[in-house]
Amino acid sequence: MPAILDARGLCKTFGAVTAANEVSAAIERDSVVGLIGTNGAGKTTFINMITGYIKPDRGSIAYEGRDITALPPRDITRLGICRSFQIPQLYRSLSVFDNMMVGLGIVLRNAGVAGFFSLRDGPVPGYGKSAPEVAEHLLERFGLADYRNRDAQVLPGGARKLLDIALTMVAKPRILLLDEPTSGVSAEEKFGIMQMVLEAVRAEGATVLFVEHDMEIVSRFAQRVLAFYDGRIIADAAPQAALGDPEVQRYVAGTRA
């Protein structure tokens, strides 16, 4: 199967810190990949390089055969690579519904359906429905319908995470990068949230990369694991094999060693 995303030889240093050292990975279409590693191992740097927030010092990133290494975040987003954030990035003074509508407005405009100066709302690309309908649909999917009219800044932690992820879905992403989707969520809620997110995402059809510290969640939801240590990928395999790797056990999983 051809890779939808192909990162080759990515290197990045911040002063004396090496955040990425010859990182290479080819991601297959429609796969679910877990990124693991201790804090500072280079997971978020990897995501930041793919989405254009930081430029690698060396190496290249190709999306469906097209080089995207030099593109800014908004152009990468327009191509269909979207991300969520470790700390949810919301429009805090807007309601949950309006958060979705801002995103949908951008999508409509980028698709040329609604010009920035026109009011005519056509169907949202990929959904075939009007923007308010898509907003309702996604809020329903992510269990946020009850919070519809609340301001984003007063949402409880779990709902903030979900809204952050729901916001990435408005553009109908082909690749979704989730940066610690369950951090800051209580242990009991973690599985439920991950289940809901992956079901929602898979229903819309997207390749998923997610950063996760909980090895049980990784082994349950990921089809493949990339283990980071000191800016390098030290293991790239199916979950059982990766988590059983002695280096991974020593540097990442820790407790099982």
Binding site: R74, C82, R92, V102
Partner: peptide, 28 residues
Amino acid sequence: HRYLATPLGRLAPAIKDNEIRVEYMGAS
């Protein structure tokens, strides 16, 4: 008034709240 109702007009509070998110939703 009309401009405020367009996607570009509605982007204003979003830029005020969170510019990073605006960029990551594909707008400049």
